[in-house]
Amino acid sequence: MVVARKVAAQVAEIFAEIYRNGKFRIFQMRLIDDFDADDDKSIAANNTSGFNCRLTDHGGLSKHALGLAIDINPVQNPYREGSLTAPEAGRAYDQPDERRSDILGIITEGDVVTRAFGRRGWSWGGRWKHTVDYQHFSFGGH
């Protein structure tokens, strides 16, 4: 996984903590290059990733482009805005009542993943109000 140098040690600690817990599974972690730098292909493949050179809706660099964001298991932890769910395979997990801690690879409030990132100052997209991005963690804000 590629992330910014200033968070690299932190990210290694986070994933070591998640791994040691033994209750959370990362389905795969490959470079975005393996998907021709196409975020849609990466999330459809349920790929956990960090750096991806992309812009925000406002034309600025995204946290992913800065190496300050990570998406984890996008199928079990999809992005949802209105009737849009991405990836499409994430529809089974896009509503709050579908998100149970017994589902392998799902991120829920207070679990090992949200605690590991939260202790180190990372924000979770699962807490957003307008859009919800269950897969997304970012350092230094939205």
Results as ranks from 00 to 15, higher is better:
21 N>Y: 13
114 T>P: 07
43 I>H: 00
48 T>G: 05
42 S>T: 01
46 N>F: 06
52 N>D: 13
6 K>G: 09
17 E>C: 05
121 G>D: 04
108 T>K: 04
72 I>G: 00
87 P>F: 07
8 A>P: 05
26 I>E: 03
93 Y>F: 09
65 A>Y: 06
125 G>Q: 01
54 R>T: 13
132 V>E: 07
102 D>E: 13
72 I>Y: 00
16 A>C: 08
46 N>K: 02
91 R>Q: 09
131 T>L: 13
109 E>K: 10
57 D>Q: 12
55 L>H: 11
138 S>T: 09
55 L>N: 09
116 A>M: 07
130 H>W: 14
110 G>D: 10
64 H>S: 02
51 F>A: 03
81 E>A: 12
36 D>L: 09
44 A>E: 13
10 Q>G: 11
42 S>Y: 03
127 R>H: 15
67 G>Q: 02
14 I>E: 00
72 I>N: 00
77 N>A: 03
125 G>K: 02
119 R>H: 15
102 D>Y: 12
82 G>H: 07
45 A>S: 04
119 R>K: 14
137 F>H: 03
68 L>E: 06
78 P>F: 06
116 A>D: 07
25 R>I: 15
12 A>V: 09
41 K>L: 14
18 I>P: 02
82 G>A: 08
129 K>V: 14
31 L>H: 11
50 G>K: 00
93 Y>D: 00
46 N>Y: 04
11 V>N: 05
1 M>S: 11
129 K>T: 15
100 R>M: 10
81 E>C: 12
115 R>V: 11
130 H>D: 15
52 N>M: 12
63 K>Q: 08
134 Y>M: 10
39 D>L: 12
56 T>D: 03
43 I>Q: 00
62 S>G: 04
133 D>A: 08
5 R>T: 14
109 E>D: 15
84 L>W: 10
118 G>I: 08
87 P>N: 05
21 N>A: 15
33 D>T: 13
61 L>G: 10
128 W>F: 14
62 S>M: 01
34 D>M: 14
139 F>E: 01
106 I>H: 01
52 N>T: 13
90 G>Q: 04
90 G>T: 06
96 P>C: 07
115 R>G: 07
69 A>N: 03
32 I>N: 01
94 D>R: 00
124 W>D: 00
47 N>V: 07
87 P>Y: 06
73 N>H: 03
121 G>K: 00
46 N>A: 05
6 K>E: 15
67 G>P: 02
99 R>S: 02
40 D>T: 11
115 R>K: 11
39 D>C: 11
10 Q>N: 10
92 A>H: 08
90 G>A: 07
109 E>R: 12
48 T>D: 05
65 A>R: 02
